[in-house]
Design a protein around this nucleic acid. Structure first.
Lengths: 140, 140
DNA sequence: CTTGCACCTCTAGTCGCTAGAGGATGTAGG
DNA sequence: CCTACATCCTCTAGCGACTAGAGGTGCAAG
């Protein structure tokens, strides 16, 4: 059997080398076997697991949520209600974040458009920050 | 002159008490004078500065960007080109973040809609995470 | 055999706060 | 004046999810 080094595992999964070690240290990834010279030797299943983690992180799931998703994956006879709930909760978070960022975008556009590119004392950017009451938008 | 305690300053600016002390510790806010009993005594100008910082933080500006914006505010004869550049950079960031989150939203919706609420081994949530190639969207 | 890269462990740093310990001060009521 | 209680003080440590660096070992090619 070919030995998969940590560098190889990192390349195949898209997770950085120190991050792989970090995931092992927090128990998200089982400690792999070691070579004679004490170097980690990964299995193909570890690559899948790392890839799973990377995708979930890219989707913004927190480590603890991923831990739960992984235990679900490890036991496929369970109901997927938990996985569904986690994904739905994340969807709600993302939707809220988008709404909030759209408001920020509008506010930043007002600031930038209003800037006459002159001196600071006429600058709308500074002005809006100093007195939020002048801002046409409200996001609280 | 009435003395403004840290609690009062916090209430008026909307910045929490420990955060006010934190801003002082990193030099974002000048250290205020102290009462006989060593308690901080703020000026109205400090409240304005804290309010400015809070607005900027709400808009997602980083502390170092705020530090720059504050030095610009302190010297109103400067060109506002820097302020303009900072705000524009922030706008670009926000726009990118929104695009990225919209892609995530679509992906999460696919996952959640595809979930048959059955067992984990038929769950689309887990499936998509395990093999990103099955995902209809791409965001890289 | 030596060069040089990849690997090892460990600690500390990042950002922007937040929590808590343990003690001092200020104020209102009795 | 005394007591209760809120608020203040400093200091250290913790959060999440890594990232950087020091100082050392393993390994494969030339």
């Amino acid at each position: 059997m070919k030995k998969i080094t940590i560098g190889e595992a990192a390349r195949r999964s898209g997770v950085k080398v120190p991050t792989v070690r970090y995931y092992e240290s927090i128990g998200l990834l089982a400690a792999p076997s070691r070579s004679e010279g004490n170097q980690r030797s990964f299995e193909p299943a570890d690559i899948s697991r790392l890839t799973f983690i990377r995708h979930a992180r890219e989707l913004g799931f927190e480590i603890e949520a991923i831990r739960t998703l992984l235990t679900l994956q490890d036991d496929p006879h369970q109901s997927c209600a938990s996985a569904d709930a986690i994904a739905k909760a994340r969807l709600v978070e993302v939707e809220q974040r988008i709404r909030s960022l759209m408001a920020l975008k509008a506010e930043l556009e007002t600031m930038v458009e209003g800037c006459g590119h002159g001196r600071v004392d006429q600058c709308r950017v500074i002005e809006v920050l100093a007195d939020h009451g002048q801002c046409t938008h409200s996001h609280h």
